[in-house]
Amino acid sequence: MSEAVINRKKDRRKEILKRYGLAIGFVSPFVLVFIIFTVIPLIMGFVISLCKYNPYDLESTTFIGFSNYLMLFGNNVLARTFWQALGKTLIFDVVAVPCLIIIPLGLAYLINMKPPGYKIFRAIIYLPSVISITIVGVLFGAIFSDSELGLINAWFSSENPIPFLSDPVLRWTVILLASIWWQTGTNFIILSAALRNVPKSLYEACEMDGGSRLELFIHVTLPNIKGSLGIVLFNTLIGYLNLYGQPTVLNSAINRNNIESPMMLIQQWLNSFERSSLTGLISATAIFFGLIVMLFTFIERYLMKDRKGGSKYEIQYKAYEA
C-alpha cells in the first residue's frame, strides 16, 4: 500500500475519532455490558441448543445440529408440555391483553376529562405499577388464600373455604385480576399522555361536522393515539407471552410443579438437577419460544403500521380534493 493511501486512512481514522470519539466514549459502557450480559449468553445459548449438553458432564457434549429444535415438533413429553403451556398462555393473553388495553384506555379517557380530584385518581391508578410481582403475589395471595384465614374466605366464614388458588378456573381469574390491578397503571400513563396530545381542533372540527361522542372517539381519538396504542399493545403482548411471575407467585404449594406457560417450563426444567442432561434441549426451547414471541410482535407491528397510500379516509379525501 502506498504511503499516500496509508496517510489517507490514518487521516480518516483521526477524523472519525474526532467526530465520534465522545459519543463512542459515552456509549461504550452500555455496549460492553450489553455484549457481556446479552450478546454472549445469547450466542452461548444458541451454541448449546445445537448440542446434547450436560453441565455436570461436559465430556459427553455432542454436536447434534437442529435435532433439539425438531424435538419440539415430535411426539414427546417436552413438545406436548410446551405446546400445551403455549396454548394456555395464548388463551389467557386473548383475555388479558385486551383488558389491559381497554381498561387503561377507558380510565385515561375519563381522567383526561379532568374531573374533580383527577390528580389523586391518576396517582392511585399508577401506584400499583411500582411494586414488584412478589408483593402482588403476597397481597393477592392473602386476599384470595384457599384457607379460611384468607380475607375473602374469612369474610364469608364458610366451613368450606373457596379454593381460589387450587381451582384452575378461579386461579386464572385471580391471576387476571392481579394482572389488571398491577399493570393498568403503566399503560394508563402512556395512553393518558397520548390522549392529551390529540389536537383539540380536530375534536372541534368533528363536532362542527355533527360528530357524536362515539364518532369523536372512533374517528379522531383512536387514529391520533394509534402510535401509543401500538407501543402499549407491543409491550403488553411481549410481557404476557412471557408470562411467568403471576402464575408462580399466585399458586398453592402443592401445585408448584404445574406448568402453565412456556417460561415456567423453561425455568422448571433448567432448575431440575435430574434434567441437567437436557440443557441443550431446554436452550433450544427457549430460543424457539423467543422466535415465536418475535413472530407475534412482527405480526402486531405489521397490522399496526400505516398502509402505503394511507387510510381509506385519506384516500377518499385525496379523491375529493382532486
Binding site: L50, K52, T62, F63, I64, G65, F66, S67, N68, Y69, L70, M71, G74, N76, S277, L278, L281
Partner: peptide, 19 residues
C-alpha cells in the same frame, strides 16, 4: 450442513431407559 448433521429426530432416545 447443520441440518444434515441433525438427521436424528430424537437424539435422546435411549433403548435402555436413559443414561
Amino acid at each position: 450442513a447443520l441440518t444434515l448433521a441433525s438427521c436424528d429426530t430424537n437424539p435422546y432416545d435411549d433403548p435402555i431407559g436413559g443414561g
